[in-house]
């Protein structure tokens, strides 16, 4: 096994700028091997529903709440259904610029969600998230 145990990360967000910057930081800091970027939740969900190899299964999902067509909440509802079939259980972070107390409360009430991160996401913030997962797994 590689010493870097985080192999795959999913970024799900409709904000192109955020996706670009986050991907750049993760690559630059070498936080994981593979980064998959989804501009809408439905496509990401479709991908997860397929029979994925361990390698392609995400270790971590950074999920936005406010998205058209399918928002973060709707994604989580669907994800719950396929979760038992997953070979690798990913850690999910909600990443959003919403500071609505109701959103924060709702996020905390969902057991699949590890934490709630308020944008903007800095390199330091990303490092912290990825390291906490590494620590948890080792």
């Amino acid at each position: 096994m590689n010493e870097n145990i985080i192999e795959t990360a999913y970024l799900i967000d409709d904000d192109r700028i955020y996706l670009y910057t986050a991907e750049r930081f993760i690559k630059y800091l070498k936080l994981c091997k593979n980064i998959k970027v989804y501009r809408d939740a439905q496509t990401a969900l479709n991908q997860l529903s397929k029979e994925l190899s361990i390698e392609d299964s995400p270790d971590i999902i950074l999920l936005d709440i406010n998205m058209p067509v399918m928002d973060g909440w709707q994604f989580l509802e669907e994800f719950k259904k396929i979760h038992p079939k997953l070979k690798k259980k990913p850690t999910i972070y909600l990443v959003t610029s919403s500071v609505l107390p109701s959103d924060i409360e709702k996020a905390k009430s969902i057991s699949l969600v590890s934490d709630y991160i308020v944008k903007p996401v800095t390199p330091e913030g990303l490092e912290k998230i990825f390291k906490s997962i590494k620590n948890k797994s080792s």
Partner: peptide, 21 residues
Amino acid sequence: AHIVSHNMRSHTGNLNILCSL
């Protein structure tokens, strides 16, 4: 107020990150 702050924040946050990049 919340929504406005959300939208403004996402733009200003992006600007901030892009500038440092």
